[in-house]
Simulated scan of single mutants.
Amino acid sequence: MQIDFNLKLESEKLLLRPLLESDLAQLFEFTQESEMWKFYTHDLSNKDGLIDWARPALKKDRLQFVIIDKAENIILGSTAFGNYALRDRRIEIGWTWLAKPHQGSGINAQVKQIMLTYAFEKLYMERVEFKTDVLNTQARKALRNIGAIEEGVLRSHTLMTKERRRDTIYYSILKSEWNHIKRENDW
């Protein structure tokens, strides 16, 4: 099964729909706090960084979603499916960020639930992987909280903003773990 780049996913409260070029102006309003991007591969607080970040999504190399609050009809942030390997039945969830007022609100866990359910129950993935900066303790805690297993660190793996080299830590959830994780998280 191939990735549908027109895919929309939703729960009772959230809609995940593909990023459109017309979304960039609204997203730019939420990205002005440069401190938000210290653990991110692009500095989205400047327009060039935002456009560079969006380019793979607009070229359909990554399925980047905007996260929308259905009741308020406002964009809260973004997340993506990427690094899809059909033969290996593997996909990555990442490139996730939330506007500052929505951080720590439980939205990230809801988004992961929607995406993991789709990955395991519609795409029939064997493995869903996540990666983050080894220094990003908040993201690491969030991944552990949803049941992702820490796998290891790739040293000097990724170029970050301000020319810093990131040590990247990988996490994953396997198909064999999915039912247990759904029960543990009351999904």
Score class of each variant (00 low, 15 high):
Ile3Glu: 11
Ile3Cys: 10
Leu7Gly: 02
Lys8Arg: 14
Glu10Asp: 13
Glu12Thr: 13
Lys13Ala: 09
Lys13Glu: 11
Leu14Asp: 04
Leu15His: 07
Ser22Gln: 13
Asp23Cys: 09
Asp23Met: 07
Leu27Glu: 08
Glu29Pro: 00
Thr31Glu: 05
Glu35Asn: 14
Glu35Val: 12
Met36Leu: 15
Met36Cys: 10
Lys38Trp: 09
His42Met: 03
Asn46Asp: 14
Lys47Gly: 00
Lys47Met: 13
Lys47Leu: 12
Asp48Pro: 00
Asp48Leu: 14
Ile51Gly: 06
Ile51Met: 14
Ala54Gly: 10
Arg55Tyr: 13
Lys59His: 14
Lys59Ile: 11
Lys60Ala: 10
Lys60Gly: 08
Asp61Tyr: 07
Arg62Ile: 09
Phe65Thr: 04
Phe65Ala: 04
Ile67Asn: 03
Ile68Gln: 04
Glu72Gln: 15
Ile74Trp: 11
Ile75Asn: 05
Leu76Asn: 00
Gly77Leu: 06
Ser78Asn: 07
Ser78Tyr: 02
Thr79Val: 12
Ala80Tyr: 02
Phe81Gly: 06
Gly82Ala: 09
Tyr84Ser: 07
Tyr84Pro: 07
Tyr84Asn: 12
Arg87Val: 12
Arg87Ala: 15
Asp88Ile: 08
Ile93Phe: 04
Trp95Val: 00
Thr96Leu: 04
Thr96Asp: 03
Trp97Arg: 02
Lys100Tyr: 06
Pro101Asp: 09
Pro101Thr: 07
His102Cys: 03
Gln103Cys: 08
Gly104Lys: 11
Ala109Val: 11
Ala109Ile: 11
Lys112Trp: 06
Leu116Trp: 00
Lys122Ile: 06
Met125Cys: 12
Glu126Thr: 06
Thr132Phe: 01
Val134Tyr: 08
Asn136Lys: 07
Asn136Gly: 07
Thr137Gln: 14
Gln138Ile: 15
Gln138Phe: 10
Ala139Asp: 05
Arg140Phe: 01
Ala148Cys: 13
Gly152Lys: 08
Leu154Lys: 13
Arg155Glu: 05
Thr161Val: 05
Lys162Pro: 04
Thr168Ser: 08
Thr168Ala: 02
Thr168Met: 05
Ile169Val: 14
Tyr171Phe: 06
Ser176Met: 13
Glu177Val: 11
Glu177Ile: 12
Glu177Gln: 15
Trp178His: 04
Trp178Asn: 02
Ile181Asp: 02
Glu184Lys: 15
